[in-house]
Design a protein around this nucleic acid. Sequence first.
DNA 1: ATGGTTGGTTACCAA
Length: 263
Amino acid sequence: MRLVTWNINSVRQRLHLIQEFTDLYNPDVICLQETKAQNTDFPIKEIRAMGYDHTEIHGMKSYNGVAILSRHKLDNLHSHEWVGKKDCRHLSATLPNGIEVHNFYVPAGGDIPDRTVNDKFDHKLDFVDEMASWFPANKKNSDPMILVGDLNIAPLENDVWSHKQLLKIVSHTPIEVEKLNNAQQAFGWVDAMRHFVPDEERLYSWWSYRARDWRKANKGRRLDHIWVTPPLKEKLVSMDVVKDARGWEKPSDHAPAMIEIKD
DNA sequence: ATGGTTGGTTACCAA
């Protein structure tokens, strides 16, 4: 089974990217974030025409929005309201092979890394804290589960182009890293991307639109993640961040990350 | 220290 996570930055502006990606890789499941479309505006017909008959969407006007596109039936659909907000940042479903998929769009957190003056940063930290407590309280890590999404935090030194220069930049501050690591460890999630790429090696999934030449500057960050529960660890086959997709026409600023799992 | 780009919405906000 191939599963992809991709912050698409407007699903309506990126249908050509999804088509190109599926032509090349034919994934079973695609988890999208930042669809930026309320459900009535989601291009569901076009997505179904690509073979994703089992597509579940959870969107709102203008902001956020997540979707799970699947070639296989999706059961047991849920979307939790994190930090009590109805802001369309999560959708979960169970696949016919029994794997439960959780698709997340964690708040970006604004520019100022100080929760006392920046409500968006405060919200982000609360959100990640709730991720840490919710899974142990509601789920068993002995079940096969995958958590993917734009978590908007790059935890390792080699998840950013300059650890030193990003220590005070939202996405790589020590408090965010501590909280993300805590959320991962609290449930025993396995970092499936770093399972294949050693911590000593650079690994990015996002490159800013603002660079003159994003590929040449290569000032990336690993904001997108794939976590699995221990039963799936020995079933991991391969992982690929499809960096090429960042260079396609009218790209998202995020590249898709794909995992292959034996099933 | 600053400015750079994109999308959704319709005068800026969020990323």
